[in-house]
């Protein structure tokens, strides 16, 4: 069954406290060289088939529900298996 992936990320101008917490933990664990971390969400949607209609539906889903477009951006893509 094909899969559509929706990635949701906090907008660049929005403070991301979770990403900052991860960034702060990295050097404590001995990982160096990372200058910034942003944390987002990934949704994997299994669908019967990928059509323009299905993708439009997913787009609508992401816009109204999966992401809050006041604070987050999202991308929709089909994952090849």
């Amino acid at each position: 069954m094909p899969r559509v992936v929706v990635d949701v990320m906090p907008k660049p101008e929005i403070l991301d406290p979770q990403g900052k917490a991860v960034l702060g933990a990295l050097p404590r664990l001995g990982f160096t060289g990372v200058t910034d971390v942003r944390q987002g969400k990934r949704f994997e949607l299994e669908v019967h088939e990928v059509t323009d209609d299905v993708l439009a539906e997913v787009e609508k889903m992401a816009e109204t529900f999966l992401a809050n477009t006041v604070i987050e951006n999202f991308t929709v893509r089909v994952e090849e298996k």
Binding site: P10, L15, P17, N68, I71
Partner: peptide, 17 residues
């Protein structure tokens, strides 16, 4: 209310976490 768009803006995690 913010998620419903009855009010503007959003509420995110406290800055000090």
């Amino acid at each position: 209310l913010c998620e419903s768009h009855l009010l503007p803006g959003a509420l995110i995690r406290n800055d000090h976490r």
